[in-house]
Amino acid sequence: MAAEGKAIDALHQFQLAPVLGEFGEQYMFSQSALFMVAAVVCITALMVLGMARGAVVPGRLQSLAEASYEFVHDLVVGQVGDEGKKFFPFVFCLFMFVLFGNLLGLIPYAFTFTSHIAVTFALAALVFVLVTIVGLVIHGTHFFSYFFPEGAPKLLAPLIIPIEIISYLSRPVSLSVRLFANMVAGHVMLIVFATFVVMIGSAGVIGYFGAVLPLAINVILVGFELLVAFLQAYVFAILTSIYLHDAVHLH
């Protein structure tokens, strides 16, 4: 099918290009940065406009703002405990940023900034550094006992400590790769099936009937991607909370 000199170009959608003409060229302002700004504007608008009236019986926008607040609040307090309230703003920002990045990316012609490992790794590195600093501030040098479980035989220390340190260092990698891989895989699948629709559809009248199948798959995939977009933001937030729990309570 793809042998007519036009292979399926599934990765083109992830390429960065300057936007907004002259300004974009000068400051290397890519569509990724544009959609990050869009996400921040959307989140701010949701929270500010949603809570502007502060009605006792909330309207649609206010319910959405309150629901997202309560969802993340319950998540953080449930995982970290009462001390977690201090970290609620951080986790809320992360969750909303990732969620809006994923959701905005599903709009046709939009760019998914969470499909770049540079972005997700920056977020994960932020979590990693914050968690380490929190652990150090709360527990001081006692924090390093995290790398050597209590009661383990001292003889095994040279074996256990490198393993624990690498396990600890692998957290930001797994955190970022999980989000990045999910978003890339979803968008590649969407574009592959969309290309099938065009390819089969160009085969004449029979093609129109044949193209219905990949089109139907794409409709289902968009719904699935909505689920993944929410789920991955949730997983990112809950793993951040779990790491914070570990740092606050040490084991």
């Binding site: 692998s170 790769v177 891989a181």
Partner: peptide, 15 residues
């Protein structure tokens, strides 16, 4: 399954 795979691969990559 996906999470387990990523955990293994990322730890291996860091190592």
């Amino acid at each position: 399954g996906f999470r387990a795979g990523i955990e293994v691969v990322s730890a291996l990559a860091v190592g």
